[in-house]
Amino acid sequence: MNIASMQLAAPSGLLALALFVVAIAVVAMLAGSFWLGNRIKLNEPPRPRPDEQPHLPPEGPVHEVRQNREPDEVPRTPKGGRPLTPYELTNMRTRPSASKDRPRWSKGTTGSFGGGGLGAH
């Protein structure tokens, strides 16, 4: 090794100073983010008091209603008539079904696309 390579390999105080300045900048950014978050939190409305919390209705808890529903029929176009556009169709509504039997999938399937079953063979 020659003198030039020894001088380049010697530790430099400039590198240590740069790392110290970067560390101070990161700590300052973290402190600033905590300060800004605290300011934002102080501007929010206060949390509700216990007496402002929702209460159960007088008749007690609401229970789940299970019923089968069936869709309304899609309007048919007369033969030779023009097809309906999506804007002419309304939201498809459903109505309670008279049948009490739950719809089931075919045996051996999960009912979902890509469910991993063998499918209906």
Rank of each mutant, 00 (worst) to 15 (best):
D101Q: 09
N91Q: 14
G81D: 10
P50Y: 10
Y87G: 11
T85Y: 06
K107H: 09
A10D: 09
F113K: 13
S33R: 13
P54C: 01
R102A: 05
V65S: 01
G81H: 07
D51H: 11
F20S: 12
H55K: 15
P61Y: 05
G13W: 03
R39T: 08
G108H: 03
P58M: 04
P58V: 03
V21E: 06
T94C: 05
R39E: 13
E73T: 08
P86H: 02
L56Y: 10
A98N: 13
G115S: 04
P48V: 03
R49P: 00
R93T: 12
R47Q: 13
V27A: 15
A23N: 04
L8M: 14
L8G: 03
T77K: 10
S99W: 01
F20E: 09
Y87V: 08
V65E: 04
E64C: 11
L19D: 05
A98P: 06
L36K: 09
P75T: 05
T94S: 14
P78S: 09
S97Q: 02
L42P: 00
N2G: 15
N91D: 13
I24Q: 04
D72I: 06
E59C: 02
M29C: 10
L84E: 02
N38C: 06
A25T: 03
G37H: 02
P57Q: 08
T94N: 10
A31H: 04
T90C: 08
G119D: 02
G111L: 00
P96N: 06
F113I: 14
V65A: 05
P103N: 10
K41W: 08
I3L: 15
N91G: 08
P58E: 10
R82Y: 08
L118S: 13
N68W: 01
A25P: 00
P11T: 02
I3A: 11
P11M: 05
P96K: 05
S33M: 14
L89N: 03
T94I: 04
A16D: 12
Q67E: 12
A18F: 11
E44V: 02
Q67K: 14
R66L: 15
G60V: 07
G32E: 01
V21H: 04
E70Y: 06
F113V: 14
H121N: 13
A120R: 14
N38H: 14
L56V: 12
K107Q: 14
H121T: 11
S97T: 01
A9S: 13
R69P: 00
V27E: 02
R39C: 05
A9N: 11
I3W: 12
A98R: 08
E70C: 10
V27Q: 05
E88S: 06
L14N: 04
M1D: 08
